[in-house]
């Protein structure tokens, strides 16, 4: 168990609506984990809690209860400095969230330089290297608003990589893209996966999940209702909910 990077025990997340006080139990006891170099795809119906699960891992959402350990450290404890954790567990968002007032270069170098992990020169060199890797070296001095959706997401991936993270969390990275741009982003992610990056991927791209993931988590109604290798989950699903969900999304 030593090579586990993230371990999650009995994770619960309940949202309370401020105006009515109604409780919404989004996560109801999730226990799982990810090994170094492992790629896990999280699938499930919308509203099932898969994005919330991902956002609890780096405490973008505060877990209601449960324990999450990252490299052996309990990151749900009050003593944990979550900023240090996030440097090593970066997130790629559905809507990219590039910083529009900064050039692509500055988008990549802001955090490493501000956190004094690199000098501006080192960060610039690293930015150039990473942008080459995602095929956008010529866009280094471009403004984000001048880029296409696919290019933005590739920059966002490069921005996350600039922190040299141990794990990358992808929160539906292709869901906001025009269909013709999905391929270029998936190519980058495939290359990342092949290079041994540890990845959590919340996605609706079943084909890509099948191709890249080592393990599939099917989350439904706040619990992992089925998990296994892509072959097990996609080709021989056991749970009725999984069968129903897959029949709906794979019919296309």
């Amino acid at each position: 168990m030593n090579d586990m990077i993230i371990e999650v025990k009995d994770l619960h997340k309940t949202f309370i609506r401020k105006d009515t006080g109604t409780e919404l139990k989004v996560l109801q006891g999730i226990s799982t984990g990810i090994r170094k170099g492992e790629k896990i795809a999280v699938i499930g119906p919308s509203g099932s809690g898969k994005s919330t699960f991902l956002r609890c891992l780096n405490r973008m959402e505060e877990p209601t209860s449960g324990v999450i350990t990252f490299n052996g450290e309990d990151i749900t404890s009050p003593k944990c400095d979550i900023n240090l954790v996030r440097r090593k567990m970066c997130m790629v968002f559905q809507h990219f969230h590039l910083f529009p007032h900064l050039t692509v270069r500055k988008n990549l170098t802001l955090a490493p330089v501000d956190l004094k992990l690199m000098t501006q020169d080192e960060a610039d060199a690293r930015a150039h290297e990473l942008l080459s890797r995602v095929g956008l070296a010529d866009k280094i001095d471009e403004w984000p608003d001048r880029l296409s959706g696919g290019q933005k997401q590739r920059v966002a991936i490069a921005r996350a990589l600039a922190m040299n993270p141990d794990v990358l969390l992808f929160d539906e990275p292709t869901s906001a893209l025009d269909p013709e741009m999905i391929g270029e982003v998936l190519d980058v992610m495939k290359e990342l996966a092949d290079s041994g990056m540890t990845m959590y991927l919340v996605t609706h791209e079943m084909g890509f999940a099948h191709q890249v993931a080592d393990r599939i988590l099917f989350i439904d109604k706040g619990i992992i209702s089925e998990e296994g290798t892509p072959d097990e989950v996609f080709d021989h699903p056991k749970q009725p909910r999984t069968i129903e969900f897959l029949s709906k999304v794979l019919r296309r």
Partner: peptide, 24 residues
């Protein structure tokens, strides 16, 4: 999302405010 993106890279609340939110 701007604040989330900045925080997700490990920037503190203050740094995120200063470098990302306030300039915009």
């Amino acid at each position: 999302g701007q604040m989330e993106a900045a925080r997700s890279l490990g920037l503190s609340y203050g740094s995120s405010m200063r470098h990302v939110i306030l300039p915009q």
